[in-house]
Design a protein around this nucleic acid. Structure first.
Length: 982
DNA sequence: GCAAGGTC
């Protein structure tokens, strides 16, 4: 026994009083067949089956059919409805706010499926209902959601994964889908008998597309919007400037046509026209040569005609001609024809069609099919229309015609839905709903009736051996035209000519004309282009067009043609100038091909996803780098670009990852210090992760190289391109080279003293102050700053060891003012000198593990200058200088080290003569003009060749400095300037 | 505030 609780046609409806809660029906008779089918397929005993349909109306309709009778089996089948957008995809919370992160991070940010608030009731209903069931049947009529259409852009929120997600708490539930294209007993019964299994591969492809669309769309939209609002505040302050894989190519079509018109150069052409008046009419004969672009050539031929202007009829042919009835209606044709003939735009048309469908007046309006299936009985559908006072008679004619309804057959089928056709007669609709319904009915009746028939007569004449012709048309049977006012076919009357006869034309004229540019696109043109290039689906064309209008990318002329707006033009031109075909339909062709392979099961979802995320991320990074091109392209339209500050510019710049952070695993990127141009390597996890690498001042420039270190782990560890200050490297080393700081390059590690990573400390992104630099080897001591706010030193970064734990957790927060930390970042060990000698019994610190050569006398922790021979040299005071490869000046035995006072103050700097230096300014024209430097203060003839830039505080290297007297080089004339201090 | 995909 089944469904004893049947009340009327459907026995139980729940939640109908509460909006948003799906209705629920228990079903009978055919549901038994349905359940039996499940049992046969799954070979299990089924007690309860849950059916879900796409819409309440559909669910109700199917339930009604399935309940239309008595039950015999002890199986319960419940029907409920779901809605589109049951689950969406979104970034996890930290990335949702626009200012929460650099948009580039959206390529890697975690995403999750979520159920929007207004959908929770539906989700809950599904979860509750399915709990009792052993099988789930998906009755969504939009079968195309599981079929990658020709364009490959179909996607759906009803994908298999959605249902698995919703049913995830149910084990061993069988999931089937029922294929049906209309809610009729036959169709529903057939669906019950032909249950299929959902295709997980197609669901995977849908997932990939969805995720890529989200990442690409959101990242580019945020980038464009935030940047351009800043650059053009007057025009764009409140404008959302979106990017999407469908809307941009749609915009591209509009721009392309506009540019074609702009670039069009009209050409003058000439032709000969022959007129023949008869009775009160005139026939025009057209030239077989059509037109000539050479004036003289045309004139010669014209003059020849005029010399003997008698026309001889050379042939008369008369043959039947038909005007074909329209093809069965698919979505795209509906949109285009409604736009052209009814002047109702595609968006509005689809909205109306959807409503007509849910009211049961027409079939499903989203279809690519223009072939009526043989199984669809057209007679009854036509018969319903005989009720109409407007076209009822014609409908009857169709029924009466030999063979009955006889549709033309198109070439497309989505194997899911029949062409759009009326399913019920109604005469109660109003306004545009009535107009769209009438159009669908008339189109349907037209396409199942007969072609219009006519007789065409073609008359060829000859004037001085030039050929001309004209044609007349007699309409014999209007047929479909009687019901289809949207097509015109007009008869053309010409006199009766006889072959071989002659007549005198009433006029022979030479006329000129000009070639004309193409016209701006109509909505129908635009839809055709979208369809041709696979942009969007038949269900979404109208939405994308609406989007580019609402984003102010395009506008409509008074005659409803699309004209690109300033913003739209600028964006397309900007990206074009970068070399990215962001607005070209081919941009995603590789992606589409891969998605097809995923849907066929020949490519792996994850690898395809990763490949394309990385590809688009690279495009994005380049786009940001070249963002000025966008400004430049837009400024002719939107006015001068607003200058943005260096800091703002920097905020927008997107550094590429150099390597993974050894502490938290996130990317480490090169960042500019807030002051100056130098860079440091920072973890993007700042401030949560303070891992950073500071380069000493000897590094003038550092940038990321595209090459990847072959050995360092975890890959990829990108190489860095360095430029060093002159005089800071050993002579054998070039000043510019590409090296790896991953740990494999011992020389570089030593040069940069990059053995260790330190936390951002008081610096980091918020305050990127460089840490103290160290004097020349042997390595200096480093004493923890007693400030309690400083984080504890972190563990060392010495790849390729596995990622060390975060510093704080290893070392704890050691804020003791007495803490002495060695160069490894660990607490130094306190030892006592045992060896005989002057230091016997004296305490000193050294590296606990012996990894570094740290040494510090315990009784002189702050010592600035340690006597030679008594231990390692002292810590260099700030501002410190680079230390390596420092060259002595002019054969002097000592470096600058000894010449400059502890604080590096200029007043204490001495030259090679041990005199206090003077500061001068370069007077000579050139790149250094105006730059200050220190030099020997003696009269010119007695000067030593000491030289030092004031802003570098280091001596330059090379011949210029050591061998050539600087004075002569740098002081043209006697214009000198002495400064006491800087 | 973002995509494209859908519809209560």
């Amino acid at each position: 026994m089944l469904i004893v609780r049947l009340l009327g046609r459907y026995l139980l409806r729940s939640g109908i009083q509460r909006p948003g809660v799906p209705q629920r029906w228990l079903c009978a008779v055919q549901s038994v067949q349905c359940a039996e089918a499940v049992m046969i397929r799954s070979r299990t005993q089924i007690k309860r089956v849950l059916c879900v349909a796409e819409k309440n109306d559909a669910a109700k309709g199917i339930a009604e059919i399935m309940s239309n009778g008595r039950s015999r089996r002890n199986v319960t089948v419940t029907m409920t409805s779901v809605s589109g957008h049951l689950l969406g995809l979104e970034f996890k919370a930290p990335f949702q706010k626009w200012h929460s992160c650099n948009p580039v991070l959206l390529f890697d940010a975690e995403v999750e499926k979520y159920c929007p608030d207004n959908m929770t009731q539906i989700k809950r209903t599904l979860e509750k209902e399915v709990r009792q069931c052993q099988a789930l049947i998906i009755w969504t009529d939009s079968l195309t959601q599981f079929i990658c259409s020709r364009s490959g852009t179909n996607s759906s929120s009803y994908d298999f994964a959605t249902f698995l997600y919703v049913c995830s708490h149910i084990s061993n539930i069988q999931v089937f889908r029922a294929k049906f294209s209309e809610i009729t007993p036959n169709s529903i019964q057939r669906a019950c008998e032909t249950l299929t299994e959902p295709d997980a591969n197609i669901s995977d492809a849908v997932d990939v597309r969805q995720e890529l669309d989200l990442r690409i769309g959101a990242s580019f939209t945020r980038f464009q919007t935030l940047r351009l609002q800043k650059i053009f505040p007057a025009s764009l302050a409140n404008q959302l400037i979106s990017y999407g894989s469908c809307q941009f190519p749609t915009l591209g079509f509009v721009v392309e046509r506009f540019k074609a018109i702009q670039a069009f150069i009209p050409e003058t052409f000439y032709k000969i026209k022959v007129l023949h008046e008869f009775e009160e009419d005139t026939v025009e004969f057209s030239w077989k040569r059509n037109r000539l672009f050479n004036h003289t050539a045309c004139l010669v031929l014209y003059q020849i005609c005029m010399e003997d202007p008698i026309a001889t009829v050379t042939s008369i042919t008369s043959k039947p001609k038909s005007k074909w009835r329209p093809l069965p209606l698919d979505t795209v044709e509906l949109e285009k024809l409604a736009s052209r003939k009814l002047r109702i735009n595609a968006k509005e048309t689809m909205k109306i069609a959807e409503k007509l469908y849910t009211q049961g007046f027409i079939s499903y309006p989203r279809t690519e099919t223009n072939i009526f299936p043989a199984t669809l009985a057209l007679g009854p559908l036509v018969e319903q229309q005989t009720n109409s006072p407007a076209w009822g008679t014609f409908a009857q004619r169709v029924l009466d015609q030999p063979g009955g309804p006889n549709p033309r057959q198109g070439k497309n089928s989505d194997q899911a839905h029949p062409p759009i056709h009326p399913t019920k007669y109604t005469g109660t609709l109003q306004g545009n709903e009535a107009r769209v319904y009438e159009f669908i009915v008339r189109h349907f009746l037209a396409c199942v009736s007969q072609d219009a028939l006519g007789q065409e007569t073609v008359v060829d004449i000859d004037i001085a051996q030039e050929k001309f012709s004209t044609s007349g048309l007699m309409i014999i049977a209007r047929n479909y035209l009687d019901v289809y006012p949207y097509d015109r076919w007009t008869a053309k009357v010409i006199p009766v000519y006889e072959q071989g006869s002659q007549f005198q034309p009433s006029a022979i004229e030479m006329v000129d004309g000009q070639t004309s540019p193409p016209q701006l696109l109509t909505e129908a043109d635009l839809i055709s282009l979208m369809e041709k290039h696979g942009i969007g689906t038949d269900a979404t064309h109208a939405d994308h067009i609406e989007t580019i209008k609402s984003r102010m990318y395009v506008g409509l002329t008074p005659d409803q043609r699309f004209l690109p707006g300033e913003l739209g033009m600028g964006l397309v031109e900007g990206y074009n100038s970068m070399g990215y075909e962001m607005s070209k339909p081919t941009l995603r062709s590789e992606l589409e091909a891969d998605l097809k392979l995923v849907s066929e099961g020949t490519k792996d979802k994850r690898s395809v996803l990763q490949h394309h995320i990385q590809k688009y991320k690279a495009v994005f990074i380049e786009s940001v780098r070249k963002a000025k091109k966008l400004d430049e392209a837009l400024s002719p339209y939107l006015g001068a670009a607003q200058e943005i500050t260096e800091a703002e510019q920097q905020d927008m710049e997107i550094p590429l990852p150099v390597r993974k952070c050894p502490n938290c695993g996130r990317d480490m990127v090169l960042k500019k210090k807030r002051e100056g141009n130098s860079k440091y390597l920072s973890c993007v996890g700042f401030p949560a992760c303070k891992t950073a690498v500071w380069f000493p001042d000897m590094v003038l420039e550092v940038s990321r190289d595209d090459s990847v270190c072959p050995t360092c782990q975890p890959r990829p560890v990108h190489m860095l391109k360095f430029k060093f200050r002159r005089g800071t490297l050993p002579p054998m080393m070039p000043l510019e080279f590409v090296g790896c700081i991953g740990g494999c390059d011992e020389t570089l590690r030593e040069v940069l003293d990059l053995k260790y990573l330190r936390p951002g400390g008081g610096g980091g992104q918020g305050d990127p102050r460089p840490p103290p630099l160290r004097p020349p080897r042997p390595e200096p001591s480093r004493i923890t700053n007693p400030r309690p706010s400083l984080p504890a030193p972190i563990s060392s970064w010495t790849p390729p060891q596995p990622r060390p734990p975060p510093g704080g957790s290893v070392r704890g927060m050691n804020t003791s003012s007495d803490a002495i930390v060695c160069n490894c970042g660990q607490d130094a060990v306190l030892l006592t000198v045992r060896k005989d000698g002057p230091n016997q019994g004296r305490q000193f610190y050294k590296c606990n593990s012996g990894s570094c050569n740290f040494f510090l006398w315990a009784d002189q922790p702050d010592q600035q200058g340690e006597p030679q021979g008594r231990g390692p040299p002292p810590r260099t005071p700030q501002p410190s200088r680079p230390s390596l490869g420092f060259r002595n000046i002019a054969g002097e035995g000592r470096g600058l080290e000894g010449r400059t006072g502890g604080g590096g103050h200029v007043g204490q700097t001495v030259c090679n003569c041990n005199e206090a230096v003077v500061t001068r300014t370069v007077q000579k024209d050139g790149p250094n003009k105006g730059r200050m430097f220190h030099a020997c203060g003696k009269p010119r003839e007695q000067q030593c060749n000491f030289f030092q830039w004031a802003d570098e505080n280091v001596p330059p290297q090379g011949k210029t400095h050591t061998d050539t007297p600087l004075c002569g080089l740098m002081w043209p004339g006697e214009k000198t300037h002495t400064a006491n201090s800087i």
